[in-house]
Amino acid sequence: MMKKEMTPFARFEKMYASDRHLWRLIIMIIVWMIFIALTRFSKFYSILNFQTMASQFPEFGLMSLGVMLCMITGGIDLSVVGVANFTSILMAFLLLNLTNAAGGLPGYAIPLVFGLGILIGAAAGIFNGILVSKFNIPPILATMGSGELFTGLCLALTKGNAVSKFSRVYSRTINNKIAGLVPVQLLIFIVMAVFIWFLLSRTVFGTKLYMLGTSATAAKFSGLRNDRLLIKTYMVSGMCAALGGLIMLANYNSARADYGSVYTLQCVLIVVLGGVNPNGGKGKISGVVLAIILLRMLETGINRFPSISSYYISLIWGGVLILVMVLNYFTENSTRFIKRQMLQQ
């Protein structure tokens, strides 16, 4: 009875209250889309434009997914870009070897590149996980160091030059549109995002991850194998980063040690903006995906205003991040205060 009589406004309020952070992101996206529609409709709302966006964001989107997993355990992964470039450079060398005289590739080449690439990413992730769990190095330092190490290996392997001149078939395949509409990059991202969503919300592993992130001590006393969980988490993060690297390899049609170097901090920014608690234990993939979309839309939208320097984007990112945190501070602080007082009773 009560529910039926609820006014639409009250219903919306209830929905909003159930996950304020998520709705705030959605509202921001809608407001921005309306703004663009009013000012630059034709230049933004075209299939081509959306396809371009969809083929670009998976690079850092995939890396962000990995960072998100690590942050849920209370850690962080600052090595994603290093892992991505390391993978893409090794695979570029492989492609170079496989490219035949006619500039083509054997049929098994692309599956092989993806298979090996993911394996390399997994190995790199396991390395991070061992540093974090077995050697107890704080994750921020361990992954910072390993990130530097992987980047260093890239530089050492390439002397800082780009690896290119391999067959264009690779790039062309990844840049295909499925049914002429959906870019392959987007498809890879969606597959990975669904996989991680499934992992977090439908499997035992996901529940354990949130618990571990909430309290490692309580997890130990509940019989969870913390070390294995952490190693698996960083492994998945490494796999995400490797996929990101393979997409970069296709988008630039080359690999270089310093590609995407801004992505490291950008990924952390996206994940936090997506509502993941940097202390661990809290965060949803929906928030992170929305944050990725929001940032890509902001960036592309601003590019449609030639008079505005595209460099303003980083200003807006930083601004949005701090704004969201301050908003959370005000709403959560008031509710947290009430809750705390109630608890004392």
Partner: peptide, 9 residues
């Protein structure tokens, strides 16, 4: 509080 429970979960 610290060993037995995951308080915020």
């Amino acid at each position: 509080l610290s060993e037995g429970l995951f308080l915020t979960q």
